[in-house]
Amino acid sequence: MNIWLLIVGVGLVSLCLRASFLVLLRGRQLPERVTSSLGLVPAAVLAALIAPELLYSSVTGTLDVLNPRLVIGLLAAAVAWRTRNVLWTLMVGLGLLLVAQGLGWR
């Protein structure tokens, strides 16, 4: 039940944001300050999503700057920078993490 509430909630929020200017606020302009902050949102949100995943150990749940996910995440970022390709980034990252696990580095 809660899952369906979640699905509909996320769906409504996403549709309203997408339709915001195209349908709902047709022709009205937002202040420049608002539109310029919207341009910063993807970078800020994505960084906040990624950083804890890399810096907190998936085993102990504590801050661990020497855990394989941080090192491999940085390597994957380098791959993303060079190739601009999601598939390569995923394959290199997951492949290296499997190798690290195989070597007992967790």
């Binding site: 341009g39 990624i50 890399l54 995440g73 970022a77 993303a80 990252g93 993490l97």
Partner: peptide
């Protein structure tokens, strides 16, 4: 360790948006 695919996908999305200094600092 498939859960790691999620942050990896986010990394692939983040890197291209880090074009200008305000984005990098944000």
């Amino acid at each position: 360790p498939l859960d790691f695919a999620v942050p990896l996908s986010f990394i692939a999305l983040l890197v291209p948006v880090l074009q200008r200094r305000p984005q990098v600092f944000a």
